[in-house]
Design a protein around this nucleic acid. Structure first.
Lengths: 142, 142
DNA sequence: GTGCATTGCTTGCACTTTGCAAGTGATGTG
DNA sequence: CACATCACTTGCAAAGTGCAAGCAATGCAC
C-alpha cells in the first residue's frame, strides 16, 4: 500500500490531499454510520443499507485506523466483537459531511427526515456540536 | 452508463447520493481548477499539477456537464477550444471544498499559501462569496 | 466439553475503473 | 499548404471493486 501519511502526494494542494485520503465511495459513509447512526461494529456497517462488500469494508476500516480517523478495539464483553470509535481527526470531518448533505438536499431527491435537514441547514454548527457531544469524553486522545 | 440522475441510488441517504456523484479522486479537483484557479479549458485542467489522464478528464468533464455542475461551450475566438464554466449547482460545492481544505490544513502538511488558509479559516463565507462573485453574471441560468 | 451459531474478517475470481501511451479529427497559423 | 494545437478517443495493462465462499476465534446451550 502507498504510505500516504508520509507525504508522497500527487500534489500538495490541501483539497487534493483530502481527496487522496477520503475520495472514494465508501470512506465517508463508514464515518457517517459511526457518527450519525452511532454504529460501532463491523456487522452494523455491513448491514447499513448501501451494501458494502466485506473485503472493502475490512480494507477501509484498516485504512481509517491507520490514518487515525477512527480507533478499533476488541470489546471487553465479547471478544469476537470489534468496537470502532471516531477520533478527533475523524469528528473534524463532520462539517464536510454536513455541507455535502446540504448540497444534496438542495439539488437531488433523498430520504433523510425533513426536520433533520431543516435543523442542519438552519444551524449546522449546533448539529455538529450535538453529534460531537456524544463522543467527547470517550475519545482516544494522544 | 448508469443514469444516476434518475434516482437509482444504492440508498437515499443524502451523503450517499453526494458520494455516488462526487466520490472519486478527480471530480472535485476539476471544480477546484475551475473555481479557485479560474481555469476554463481542457488543456489547463490537464496541466494542473496532479497529472490527470486525458481519458479520465474527458469522462469527468462529460459527467459534470450531464450533472449540471458545469457548462461547456466552444470558444468564439478559437473553435478548437472548449470553455467550461461552473453553474450555480457547481458553485454550491464551494462550502464542501473549503471544509475539506480546512480539515487538511489541520491534520496534514500541504503547500497552500498560509495567508489564504488563514482567511479561509477566519471567514469561510467571505472567501466563498469572493470566489462566487467572479462568476455571477456570466452563469448559465435555467 | 461438544456442537452449533456468531463475529470479523480473508480468499478467489470475474468485472469495472483507472492510468499510460499513442493516435485522430477539427481547427488555427505561418 | 504544411505544420502545430486543442480536445479528445482508442487500446491495453494494471489496479480497484463486487460477489460468493470459506475460516479462525469466540460465545452459548446443553
Amino acid at each position: 500500500m502507498k504510505s500516504e501519511s508520509s507525504g508522497d502526494w500527487r500534489s500538495q494542494c490541501p483539497l487534493n490531499i483530502a481527496l487522496e485520503l477520503l475520495g472514494d465511495r465508501w470512506t465517508l459513509l463508514i464515518l457517517r454510520d459511526l457518527m450519525f447512526k452511532k454504529f460501532t461494529t463491523y456487522k452494523e456497517f455491513q448491514n447499513s443499507g448501501e451494501g458494502i462488500a466485506t473485503n472493502i469494508l475490512a480494507d477501509r476500516l484498516k485504512k481509517l485506523v491507520e490514518l487515525g480517523l477512527i480507533t478499533g478495539e476488541r470489546s471487553e464483553a465479547d471478544a469476537r466483537v470489534m468496537t470502532y470509535q471516531p477520533t478527533e481527526k475523524g469528528l473534524d470531518l463532520l462539517p464536510t459531511m454536513v455541507e455535502l448533505m446540504i448540497w444534496t438536499d438542495k439539488y437531488e431527491k433523498h430520504a433523510a427526515p425533513p426536520h433533520i435537514m431543516k435543523q442542519m441547514k438552519r444551524d449546522p454548527q449546533q448539529l455538529i456540536a450535538a453529534v460531537r457531544e456524544q463522543f467527547t469524553g470517550k475519545l482516544n486522545r494522544k
